[in-house]
Design a protein around this nucleic acid. Structure first.
Lengths: 155, 155
DNA sequence: TATTGTTATACTCTATAACTATA
DNA sequence: TATAGTTATAGAGTATAACAATA
């Protein structure tokens, strides 16, 4: 029997065959890099994705943001605050529902987002280097399937 | 222009094309399910993966665990404590280095791990339902590539 | 009554600095 | 001096309960 104490080759064969393990490893490695890119623009992962949706959907409400990104409403407060304090979005009370706020990106916010998006896409290309467009597309559809299957109600 | 306030179809086209976004979404959905499975056995994600390595590599030291799983040493203390308190591993001072501990799974620990592993594999199969073995293998190799590319030194 | 956004709070995972005991 | 493990601590991200204002 090989004991680890006197050897350098440690095996993780069991874990390496698990999809969840691969997913988690890939994601945490990737997020270190994405985090650094976001930080160059004063953003975090959550503020980047919220800003993306606000740029793409002017007038969006916080509840819609939360639904789309699976973020609990209390956790959106600081995210929206950060974007507002950075001058990237404006928050106006909705004309049809005075409880709600309509979120819209400022020109500054849209411009910053587009610059950040370019950098994120460059990182994406670096991460998928040596993969063909078809392989990337297949992998993205696989990831969407995993998410869909994982979100299904328990059998 | 379509404003979100008066519409139900909100678009996330920009985000959906980003590999990092797909990765993060898939992982966080998946981890909710894995977490529930681990909990059935009194485990967490981190205690499960540590236990797996200890079962597979008897006598493993904490520093080796940390290197393999990219866990900082301070964060291993509670993980190893949990496994020890649950009677799943034993911790003996190494005979060759009195600073270090040799970690070994107990029979109870190995048995529990094998039961948990079965449940995790069942979840894996549910998540990859409708995928062929070749497709799963391809996806796992893609995930390994993403992790490798992300871990590379900055250009 | 139900919903929008908020506050307060807690739990997990992660990260760093500083310590101890051995090497 | 370097390494193994520890302690203390801080920062994210996430989750729930309870509240005010409005629908």
């Amino acid at each position: 029997m090989v004991t680890a104490g006197d050897d350098h080759s440690i095996s993780d064969n069991t874990l390496r065959e698990l999809t969840g393990y691969r997913l988690q490893r890939a994601t945490s490695s990737a997020m270190v890099r994405y985090k650094a890119v976001f930080a160059e623009f004063g953003l975090r992962r959550t503020t980047f994705s919220c800003l993306s949706l606000i740029v793409e959907n002017p007038g969006l409400r916080q509840s819609q943001l939360g639904d789309m990104l699976a973020i609990e409403r209390p956790n959106l407060v600081q995210i929206v605050d950060d974007l507002k304090r950075g001058g990237l979005i404006v928050r106006e009370t909705s004309k049809t529902d005075r409880r709600a706020y309509a979120l819209t990106a400022t020109d500054t916010g849209a411009a910053l987002f587009n610059k950040a998006l370019k950098a994120v896409r460059a990182l994406d290309e670096m991460m998928t280097a040596e993969m063909t467009d078809a392989e990337i597309k297949q992998m993205q559809s696989d990831l969407a399937r995993l998410e869909r299957n994982a979100s299904q109600a328990k059998p």
